[in-house]
Design a protein around this nucleic acid. Structure first.
Lengths: 332, 332
DNA sequence: CTGTTAGCGCTTTCAA
DNA sequence: TTGAAAGCGCTAACAG
């Protein structure tokens, strides 16, 4: 593999000039630059990233830390972030630290130390200690889906989303409304708690009490189990708010199995606006997902460029109610 | 940030000893090693990866190249590969080059040159020219979901999968069988072609002709559209083979909308064994997805360690028919 | 078992 | 506009 010295020698200039010419820096005569470019191409030269970053202190890489790569939400967010980073010339280093063990190892060793110019933490609520470790990296940090005082973040108003979902059911006239919630918080997700509180708040404000809450683990199967359980109760709900579309789809499946028409005897509303929601005619609260990733990426990119730390921005993206066929007034 | 020299000075040893001690190399007295470790911890020292890889020529990083991060299949494969790589101490660099433009830029600049000790190319059929470029990187290459002479690869027997699916329908007594296929090959995917050929082969072997083929783009919505179109034909099929579960689910939705009972008037079989397949009681051909990623990762890892290039392995993982409720004999 | 010493390939002053 | 030269922080012989 050709080095910068090979190019310099062959082009009859100094390595400094090659470096400048190839990086598009000013103060290089255009003919010189052209010549260097040509020679570099001939030699099939590409800078050694490690040498370059050792010398410059830059890595041209951004780390993305996620709980999982699978899962509709995470994949979408990563995808949104990656597009922006790639376009800005950054490479993406991926760390998925879903289980406790890998999470601990990650924070203990911080493998990305010195490997990234910025870090994006997706949907992973970090403890105060972890924030400290991340800040010790000395690079800009961007959060998606949760926020921490002093750090840049992007997210949605989960409470507002849950409120609009619940109000929609209340406004249709439902009195017995149940919740299919997220899991028992193994990773410390804050989302389920926020949505639950907002759900309860709206019910209370309308003089209602929930008709049950069942955990659905944010999966299809969990949603189906949860709905099945709710249907077997003494006084089954006439409407259900599922904290994610995936669980809502599972719930629809359970209804169908019980020969209950969604939007007929039982209304269902989800959260996300998953591609499947449209296909299944599921009423839901839409959130911009890829955009949360791209916005966060832009945020940290701006930080990298910035001379001094700007004060943390907290971007809240809008959610909106998408009414489809699975919600309707209760049967009288 | 402390450097290795700071640690060496403070510990009263040479930098070489620090390097050896911290990397767990032999020939370091245990007390010395302990002492160095302690001092390094005190100083919060972490090796500079760029310095380290500049000096050693290793990067401890593997690049994963995919068309998209979203999409059930890709996310799962990435996840499987990542787990293995992480466990082996490698970081993961992610390149998604789904659209033609980013694909061209990727191969033109090969940003991973010198940044990775191996490359995993997932479900992205590479042209001969592209293979040449990748090989020019001089690192082991692993392919998933397609293969190229001379390269290591992991995949399933797509033809066998499609045959078993089609035979299942034929064996149930169906005569009018349609295909919901993948998209028009924008990225050069070879999978749709292989599955289609196998489908036709089985029909032919049984003296049948297909009852139509409609493109479903590997999406829910596409599957629904495709099924809807098939139902509007002169002589609609009594059974449908969808090349992916996602399309099959869309097809089920279309049937439901037409008040047709899946597994009753029309049978549907998918491909993948997506989580949703179980929930929706969808008959399908199961393929190990995460395992394709992890196997490929192991393959290249072995190559990295290996002194000389072993001859290319081509691992074919098994598929199996999972019969559920959406397939049954045709109504007489 | 430990230390010395060349580099690894680039970027970046500082001079010219 | 270009060149010379000093590192960036580490690893890997080689010596001892």
């Amino acid at each position: 593999m050709a080095t910068i010295d090979d190019v310099a020698r062959r082009a009859g200039v100094s390595t400094a000039t090659v470096s400048r010419a190839l990086r598009g820096l000013p103060n290089v005569a255009e003919p010189t630059r052209e010549h260097v470019r040509r020679v570099a191409a001939e030699l099939n030269f590409a800078v050694s990233r490690s040498a370059s970053s050792l010398a410059s202190g830059r890595t041209d890489t951004v780390a993305i830390v996620v709980p999982h790569v699978t899962g509709w939400f995470f994949a979408k967010v990563i995808s949104g972030a990656e597009a922006v980073l790639r376009a800005a010339g950054y490479d993406v280093l991926l760390y998925s630290i879903g289980d406790t063990e890998s999470r601990e190892r990650f924070f203990a060793r911080l493998p990305l130390r010195g490997r990234a110019d910025a870090v994006l933490v997706l949907a992973l609520p970090v403890t105060e200690a972890e924030v400290g470790l991340l800040e010790g990296l000395g690079v800009p940090i961007g959060l998606v889906g949760h926020d921490v005082a002093g750090l840049h973040s992007v997210g949605i108003d989960d409470a507002a989303g849950a409120r609009v979902a619940t109000r929609h059911l209340v406004n249709l006239g439902h009195k017995r409304i149940a919740l299919i919630s997220g899991d028992g918080d193994p990773l410390g997700f804050t989302v389920p708690g926020m949505r639950r509180a907002a759900f309860q708040e709206v019910l209370r404000a309308n003089g209602l009490r929930d008709a049950g809450e069942v955990v659905g683990d944010f999966t299809y199967a969990g949603g189906e189990r949860a709905m099945t359980e709710l249907l077997a109760r003494e006084d089954p709900p006439t409407a259900v708010f599922a904290m994610s579309d995936e669980m809502a789809v599972g719930a629809l499946k359970a209804l169908r199995r019980h020969r209950i028409d969604p939007g007929g005897a039982v209304s269902v509303i989800g959260f996300d606006d998953h591609e499947m929601a449209e296909v299944l005619d599921l009423t839901t609260v839409a959130q911009p997902v890829a955009e949360q990733g791209s916005t966060a990426a832009s945020l940290v990119l701006r930080q990298i460029g910035g001379q001094r730390a700007t004060e943390p921005e907290r971007v809240v993206l809008p959610v909106r109610l998408v009414v489809r066929g699975t919600t309707a007034p209760p049967r009288s």
